[in-house]
Design a protein around this nucleic acid. Sequence first.
RNA 1: CGGGAUAUAGUGUAACGGUAGCACGAGUCCUUUGGGAGGAUUUAGUCUCGGUUCAAGUCCGAGUAUCCCGACCA
Length: 417
Amino acid sequence: MRESQLFFKTQKDFPKDEVAINAQLLLRANFIEKLMAGVYSYLPLGYRVREKIIRIIEEEMNALGAAEILMPALHPRSVWDATKRWETMGKIMYQFKDHSGREVGLGPTHEEVMAVIGKTVIDSYADLPRAVYQIQTKYRDEPRAKSGVLRGREFTMKDLYSFHTDEASLAEFYEEAKKAYTKVFTRAGLKAYATEASGGDFTKEYSHEFMVETNAGEDEMMLCRLCGFAQNTEISKLKSGTQCPKCQSGVLDKVTSVEVGNIFKLGTKFSEPVGFTYKNQEGRSMPVVMGSYGIGIERLLGTIVEVHHDDKGIVWPEAVAPFKAHLLRIGEATPELQRLSEETYHALQKSGVEVLFDDRERASSGEKFFDADLIGIPWRIVVSEKTLVREKVELKRRNEQEVKVITLNACIKSLTL
RNA sequence: CGGGAUAUAGUGUAACGGUAGCACGAGUCCUUUGGGAGGAUUUAGUCUCGGUUCAAGUCCGAGUAUCCCGACCA
């Protein structure tokens, strides 16, 4: 991709109002654009990161045996009346009437719709267990959108639902889902702790929140730095003291964190009210036992920025970076330098390296370096008069100081290892 | 939804109640080209409504928006 043709523009100044680092950096580097509080557009760079995250999630969900579907964002009131949540979710749900007076709402979550769909697919114990997920836009009339992209009014959620004959089957899947979640976050460059939490609205049983330690967070968890055991602060209050209940030798520290995902055992809470049942082997109708598992895509993206940045800009983990390499043509674009930069660009592309080529004629070298640091692509390749005379290129990692002057072939080799 | 703060050009900032200025950006021309280049020139602004006043960006009231702290969520 040529930077001269990409639809974005970095900003020299920090946005005045924003305090959250993810908002400052993502807005300044123009990954995103704010339309209103908690509602953002994703420009090419942000879009690419978002897509990378989604691909990782899809891979791990598919590996779990879940199939991807897509449910609507617009729901009729009737679906929500079955569980009485039209009323109880009223505060946070965008609800309105269409032109013919029908009451409709934008989905803040999809348990009800899911159960309705489930009814058409699942009839018998032979149809179970099953798992489906979607990556879809949620709408929540948050009383307070905040922290940039961390809490939005419109955001994308991966929501996975599992269906079982009994609690044992659910528990088994739940553990697999927990592992898959850990994989997702690890691949996205985050250390997420599966903390025990109360089930909240959904279930009396415990649930797990996936917490990432960062000051930008709005949650707290109790963390043992020795063994990595983590616990929700509420649960921690009820149970143990400050000693780690797992390794017995560590101490639980209270740390600020962001909840990037959570998993719930729903049981029959949503299946019973809508009559979502299956026939067991004796031919009796039984409510389907459900689990639900969520990840906030943009929150995850924002959290990555909160964790991976320095004073110059973002430092993307390679797996979610908008591009793998950032090629900068530095100095006057003489025919010779043009030749070397184009050659480098094409060679990288041919080798399958995702590369952003800063071929801008009018940007100064300083501007290109600053932008490259701000955008945070993992590998920086520089071609200039200096490298031209030796027929080489410079290779530098965003998170390291060392600059290597090497041949184009050697450069490609280190990028395609 | 309670509490606090802020609102001036695309962005960031000035202006005693009395001529809305500066920097960046953007446009044109020239010179530049290894860490946000220099000169010339052009461009664009007081959140909305009401009030006080000879006069309001500035004072008062209401509204709206944004950010922050709480309560709630991925």
